[in-house]
Simulated scan of single mutants.
Amino acid sequence: MSNLFTLRLSIALGGILLVATGLAQASSNNTRYAVVDKEGQPLPDYVLPSDTLIPDEPNAEQILYGKRLLNETKTLMPDNVGSHMNCNSCHIEQGTKPYGAPYINTFNSFPQINPRAERMFSLEDRINGCMQRSMNGKPLDEDSNEMQSMIAYMKWLAQDVPHGGRVQIDNSGPIDKSLVPDPDRGKAIYALQCAACHGSNGEGKRDASGTMAFPPLWGDESFNLGAGMARTYKAAAFIKYNMPMGVNTHGGWGEGEVLNDQDAVDVAHYFTHQPRPDYPAKIYDFPSGNRPKDFRD
């Protein structure tokens, strides 16, 4: 059996599973976005590629492995992941959903200044930041197969958009940061809207095989205090536009817009301020002292 046939069979079976669970990636003929170059001039539209095209790539195995790593980070890299999180716990629909931290522009956006570190970051730096914060784990060797495979998937997802060009898809939506959070109200919203998936005590939910199906939002198995998701307004923006899941009868899951800004801020403040692992190196964040108001000490 040839490697190419095996790759095509793997994708076909995976596609059946995704459709059956309602999480199929949007097909390439109905999801398109405008593109501009680094000077802001229009380029040909970006069309979201179908995974069935991956076997046609010369590095198909690497791209597919990177895709798996982003979906199954804890399972495939247990020595580097301390939490029970996967990269795609926060990057919705495998990094393709507007407002859900998509990967579509990621490859073409680096190197860039990281606001938290106030220095230039490579894409490897950015991934390792997530490994140490959201994954509460250890950085990867920058030349490792795992690191380079995740980057290969992000590069493939960018398609032929030139470096510095930008697909017009939003990473996150706006949230009113002037709102004062009410954690007691947030606790009630959490019980009503979030606990069914993430657990009454933020412990997450496992499937019948014991695999974590919905990530823990606090406790020892969750992201640490250095993660962006541990900040009230960062988390609130994610919640407003992506959560709760399973509320629509059309389109993809996690479409959001169920909670208003105040609801999202209240519930975000409630769960982000529950006990979770520390990240001692956060003392070096924002070295100039210009820290956002939801920075976690």
Rank of each mutant, 00 (worst) to 15 (best):
D125H: 03
G165M: 09
E57A: 07
M212G: 11
P280R: 08
N71T: 11
K282M: 05
G164I: 08
L18I: 02
H84T: 15
M229V: 15
G219K: 04
W253T: 13
G95K: 00
R126F: 14
V167T: 11
M85G: 12
R133T: 15
V35F: 02
K293T: 13
D51P: 03
A12C: 02
D263I: 07
A236M: 10
L7P: 00
I169M: 05
R133G: 10
Q168N: 09
Y65V: 01
F223M: 06
P49H: 05
I239K: 04
G165N: 08
D79V: 09
T106L: 09
G289N: 02
R276P: 01
L17Y: 06
T6W: 00
G137A: 06
D278S: 03
G82F: 03
M120L: 15
D182N: 14
I127V: 07
T75K: 12
S122N: 10
G15P: 00
Q148T: 14
Q168W: 00
P275I: 04
R119S: 15
I54G: 01
Y33L: 13
Y190M: 03
G164Y: 08
R185W: 11
S222D: 08
Q41S: 14
V47Q: 14
R116N: 09
T6H: 03
P49M: 06
H198I: 00
Y99W: 08
D79S: 11
S122G: 11
E93A: 15
R133M: 10
G251F: 09
S2C: 12
T96Y: 10
L53D: 13
L70W: 03
P181G: 07
K138A: 12
A101E: 11
A230G: 08
W253C: 12
E72C: 10
T232Y: 03
K138E: 12
L53F: 13
E72T: 04
A213K: 15
Y270P: 04
H84A: 15
A195V: 06
I63M: 00
P287V: 11
D261F: 01
A264L: 01
F110P: 05
V180T: 15
A158Y: 04
M243W: 07
I169R: 04
K67H: 08
S27C: 12
E72F: 11
V81G: 09
L70V: 07
H91D: 01
Y46V: 09
P49T: 04
G95Y: 05
K234A: 15
M243V: 07
P58C: 09
P275T: 01
F223W: 09
S149W: 01
D207M: 05
